[in-house]
């Protein structure tokens, strides 16, 4: 049987008031199952709801509806107040380490603070800090440093160490390499893979960088305007994409190979500048979709299994 670390069901988040008519469905009916020790990748462009998803999972915001279970235990998601129980199980690493670390706190103080907040300060606090730093590949001397004395890669390591301090089950990584220099991205990715294997951690890896998501994830969900439009094993999603949006995303990846560039160009002419502010009755991707049929404008497709766990939400793809 599959060992499930996290199960989210029908998560939805609506911003704005119904009365004012200014509602935004940031997230609609998103269900995810994260297998223990595996990486679940979420890809999508800005505004697709991937960061809202991250914020709901770690309890920074409460969903409008839906449920969350960690290790089979239902978690109560509340809007305000103490979410510490949740924070012990699931931690978030942000994109920009410099804006998520307090510039006036040394690395040591930042780590001590989280341990204290969660009542985890043991006798050998300094030893624990050394241990956390070594886990992320930093020497003990970094404990004395302030964020401005760290490089981008080092600061992100500290942010990861801080997330690991509470020994969480799940780590939500929201674009963890996007703010870093190209030459240090690989080392953060390698570090994440190593820590995962050592600690049997479960990752939710959120990124717009498809080649990174493909590299690190076991399973992938593609999001578009607050919905999951395709999900499956990484090889299913990347080698046999079913949704036209996934296909468009893949074709847009800049590949560092001029030969490949010359042979590309099949389907990149979707009218991307059409911004759909409000979900219409039909498929949210229909206005941009090259395969759209009359039914797509009228009936919204639902996520259904096409083959062997590979799911897609598209009338056309499901028929073929």
């Amino acid at each position: 049987m599959v060992d499930v670390a996290l199960k989210a069901e029908q998560l939805a988040k609506i911003y704005g008031s119904r009365r004012a008519g200014a509602q935004v469905d940031a997230l609609s009916d998103v269900s995810l199952t994260l297998t223990r020790g595996k990486t679940f990748g979420v890809v999508g462009e800005s505004g697709c709801g991937k960061s809202t998803l991250a914020r709901l999972l770690v309890g920074l915001e409460a969903p409008t509806s839906g449920s969350l279970a960690i290790n089979g235990e239902q978690v109560h998601l509340k809007a305000k107040g103490d979410n510490r129980t949740l924070a012990r199980k699931i931690q978030l690493v942000f994109q920009d380490p410099f804006s998520s670390l307090d510039p006036r706190m040394t690395v040591q103080r930042a780590l001590k603070e989280i341990l204290r907040v969660h009542g985890l300060h043991r006798d050998d606090l300094d030893g624990r800090i050394r241990e956390l730093l070594s886990m992320v590949g930093l020497a003990a001397r970094f404990a004395e440093r302030y964020p401005h004395e760290l490089s981008g890669g080092q600061a992100q390591r500290v942010a990861i160490a801080r997330a690991l301090a509470v020994e969480p089950e799940v780590l939500v990584l929201d674009e963890p390499t996007s703010a870093l220099d190209v030459s240090v991205r690989a080392e953060i990715i390698n570090l994440l893979v190593r820590i995962q294997d050592e600690l049997e951690l479960t990752y939710l890896f959120i990124s717009h960088d498809l080649s990174m998501v493909r590299h690190i994830s076991d399973e992938i969900a593609v999001m578009y305007l607050g919905r999951v439009v395709e999900a499956g094993r990484y090889d299913q999603v990347f080698e046999t994409p079913l949704h036209p949006y996934t296909l468009a995303l893949e074709q847009a990846i800049p590949v560092p190979d001029p030969e490949h560039e010359r042979t590309r160009k099949v389907l990149s002419e979707a009218p991307a500048h059409v911004q759909v502010a409000k979900a219409t009755a039909g498929c949210p991707y229909a206005p941009r979709c090259p395969l759209a049929e009359p039914i797509c404008g009228e009936v919204a497709p639902v996520l259904q299994e096409k083959s062997d766990g590979h799911r897609v939400s598209c009338h056309v793809a499901l028929r073929h």
Binding site: G152, A186, E187, S211, H215
Partner: peptide, 18 residues
């Protein structure tokens, strides 16, 4: 860079240092 030929979850080449 993880390319088309890079094995899934294999260690990426690190430059090291900053």
């Amino acid at each position: 860079l993880p390319g088309l030929g890079t094995a899934h979850r294999s260690a990426l080449h690190q430059i090291g240092g900053t």
